[in-house]
């Protein structure tokens, strides 16, 4: 079983930006609806592999994308 995490954003615009940056950096990611228990937003979140967590953080911070938090997916 792969261990996944999700990155949560304030807006779908930010999450799409993030997904593109991660793709460019060659990091496996998938956009999916944000789980209800993690956010009350109606948009997306970006699912990543937990082992990529530090790289993801780095890419997003370097790219200037604001994210709310990164949570482990149960």
């Amino acid at each position: 079983m792969i261990d996944y995490s999700v990155v949560l954003f304030r807006s779908p615009n930010q999450s799409i930006w993030a997904a593109r940056l991660l793709k460019k950096a060659g990091i496996e990611r998938r956009m999916m609806p944000a789980p209800r228990n993690l956010t009350s937003d109606c948009g997306y979140c970006v699912r990543i592999r937990s082992i990529d967590l530090e790289r993801v953080r780095e890419v997003l911070e370097k790219g200037g994308v604001e994210f709310l938090c990164i949570e482990k997916l149960a």
Partner: peptide
């Protein structure tokens, strides 16, 4: 764009982005 989590919405969001 930006309203739902399915592929059509995501692709629309990507086009706009």
């Amino acid at each position: 764009p930006g309203r739902s989590g399915h592929a059509r919405s995501v692709d629309a969001g990507e086009a706009v982005f």
